[in-house]
Structure formats: structure tokens, C-alpha cells
Design a binder for these strands. Structure first.
Lengths: 202, 202
DNA sequence: CCTACCGATCGGTAGG
DNA sequence: CCTACCGATCGGTAGG
């Protein structure tokens, strides 16, 4: 688990540095030095800084692509599994907040470029989730005025943004903040069944 | 309205550039050239790049500080005025999305530094809003499980993040997305009175 | 507000 | 994987 070849170690360090100090704020020599080699040796593994950037981003999106199918299987039915689903997404980014920072930075640095990548990797999953929501509306479980696609995007964004910028907010307890995000997401999606039932049995 | 001194024009251009290409991705000569002067002349107005950065951030926060008291007067009571309040915050950032991008970038680049600024400028207002929410809970208008401070922070973050990264998401219609954000914020805060009343009158 | 200039560092190449 | 080196550009200063 600890033995990695140099290409992978370069990718790890580059991910961390790009996430924390940004692409423009990170020099190739800084990355190389942290791995224990010199800049020209780095450029043998990745032929340019841009290639390194692409490699870093590709790996993050592939991680995502590996985990999302598994996560989405949790979401075959209604409210019960919703917390599990959002919880998994939260855990994915909490496990390594640099993933969130990296994506947020890329959104700011190269909007068009990232939009394409998001469409390719996440597009299908977002459509699946939107369909689930639409079915929930038809079943009467989900609020009728939800905009499915916008809802999904903003929940993802709340999670990614919340984790990426947790240090800037007074995020004393990450868990408390993530719980509140899940609560916001859930209660703005579902019609409140408990309350309905309480009142109906009166 | 069009006549500005050079210091102000430098501030405008620096704000735009820092927001779109980042602090590290913007050179002083690029800013100076766009204003029509040379780099050493810029450095007469702002003695270093860091001073320019501070000046840019100060102005954004002061804008905010000027408008927030007025906006908050809209929020003296419950659900009716909630949409107006969130709507004003949305409009503030939609009017100039670079404000949102700048703050998001600073959160990523210098978390500790921005946290202090946020506390100083926004801290009191966040406390006021948290108190409103707490009173709403006591009145039975607001969900009892809301975490007031976390709720406020994440709604702000959803707005700022959503506007800053609108280009990256498929934000075909900004209005649709902002409406969905307001809907998410409102419906996750208030107990659904309409539904309650409908059922009670049955 | 300018020209002229500084040392430092950048991404990248040559060549082994 | 290295040393040595490239032109370009960076933030900043001198001096007027």
C-alpha cells in the first residue's frame, strides 16, 4: 500500500499542491522536490505542466466514476435510502477534501473545460437521479415544485463547496455541517410524511 | 458615472482579473496595460501586489457591509419576507458574479485569512439571522431540527458557489437555478404551513 | 506617470 | 534520472 512508482507519487503530490495552492500557484520544481527528484525528471513522466494537470483531473473523475455506480445502487427507492446516498457522496469528499478543492478550482479556472468533463463523467448519473426525483413526484413523495436537474446540481455543489471551504467558514465540527447539509437536501426534496401522518390520525 | 480616477480603475480591473484568472494567474503588467499605464505606475498607486489584493477584497466586503443593513430590514418577520431577503442576496451577487468568484477563490487560497475577514464583516449579521431562526423555531414556524448557524452559512455558500460556478454547471438559465436555490432554502427552513392548514381543515 | 533595470523563478529543452 | 542551460516573465526598485 505504501510502495508506489514515481509517476503515481508525482500525481499524489501534484493533486495535493494544485488543490491547496492552485495550478498557477504551484511550480513543477516544488512538486518534483517533494517527491525527491528534479524538475527535468518530472518532465520525463509528464511532458508538460498541462499534461500533469489533465492526469490529476482524470484520476479524480475516474475515482468518482468507479464509486458512483456502487453508490447509486443505494438509491433505488425513496426517502429511506436518500440519506445513505447523500451520505456516501459526503463521505467521498470528506475522505479527501482535496478532491473537492480541485474541482472547485477547476470550475473557476476553466469553466468550459470542466463543463465538458462534468457532462462526460457525471452527465448520465445526474440524469438517472433526475429521473428518480421525477418518479418520486409522480408517487406523491417528492415536492411537485422541485426542479430535478437544478436540485441535484445545487446539492452536489453545496457538498463540494462546503467541504472545500470548510476551513474558511467557522466549520468547528465538520460532522455538524455535513448533517445540516443532508437535512437541507432531504427536507427540501420530500413532502414531510411524518407531519402528514400525525395530522391525518388526529 | 464614467469618470473614475486611475486608482479606482485599477481596482476595477484587478477585481475582474483576480476573479477570473486568480491572484497567481494575474500579472501586474496585465492589469496596468488594461488601464492604459505601465506596471511601475501601478506600483505607485498600490505599493505591492499584496496591497492591491487587500484593496480589492476590502472594497468587496465594504459593498457587502453597505448593503446588508438595508437588506436585513426586510427580514424582521417570518416566511413572507424570507424570499425577499434571500432574493436580495442573490441579486447582489448576480449583479456582479466576480464578487462571488473572488470570495470563493480567496476561501481556497487563504482560508485562515478570509475566515478572519468573514468574522469581522459578516459575523454580526450571521448572528442576527441565527437569532431570527431561533425565534422562528420557538414560534413553531421553523423546523425544530435546523442548525441556525450552519444553515445560514450553507445557504450563503449555495448562492455564492452557484453564481461563481454557473458557467461550469449547465446553468442554461441563471434564473431557474436561483429560483431552485431559494426554493431549497425556504422549504428546508419552514414547516410547511399550507399543507398543515389543508389537512387541519379537513 | 515613464524608461531602464534588477535578481529570482518560471516551464521547458539538450544531451547524456 | 541528472546537470546545465534557454528565453520569458515575474514583482519590484532607481531615478527622474
Amino acid at each position: 500500500m505504501k510502495e508506489q512508482n514515481i509517476s503515481e507519487r508525482l500525481l499524489d503530490v501534484a493533486t495535493k499542491r494544485f488543490a491547496t495552492t492552485g495550478y498557477n500557484g504551484t511550480s513543477l520544481s516544488a512538486i518534483a522536490t517533494e517527491v525527491g527528484i528534479k524538475k527535468p525528471s518530472l518532465l520525463y513522466h509528464y511532458r508538460s505542466k498541462e499534461k500533469l494537470r489533465s492526469a490529476v483531473l482524470n484520476r479524480v473523475f475516474e475515482h468518482w466514476n468507479d464509486e458512483l455506480p456502487r453508490i447509486l445502487k443505494l438509491a433505488t427507492s425513496g426517502e429511506d435510502r436518500f440519506d445513505g446516498l447523500v451520505g456516501e457522496v459526503v463521505r467521498f469528499f470528506v475522505r479527501d477534501p482535496n478532491r473537492a478543492r480541485l474541482i472547485l478550482r477547476e470550475m473557476l479556472d476553466r469553466p468550459a473545460h470542466l463543463r465538458k468533463r462534468m457532462d462526460d463523467y457525471l452527465g448520465p448519473y445526474i440524469s438517472i437521479l433526475s429521473d428518480y426525483i421525477q418518479k418520486g413526484v409522480e408517487r406523491g413523495e417528492v415536492r411537485a415544485d422541485v426542479q430535478p436537474r437544478a436540485y441535484v446540481l445545487h446539492v452536489i455543489q453545496m457538498v463540494v463547496g462546503g467541504i472545500a471551504t470548510a476551513d474558511s467558514l467557522g466549520a468547528s465540527s465538520i460532522d455538524l455541517h455535513m448533517n445540516e447539509i443532508v437535512r437541507i437536501a432531504r427536507s427540501s426534496l420530500f413532502i414531510d410524511q411524518h407531519r402528514t401522518q400525525e395530522l391525518q390520525t388526529k
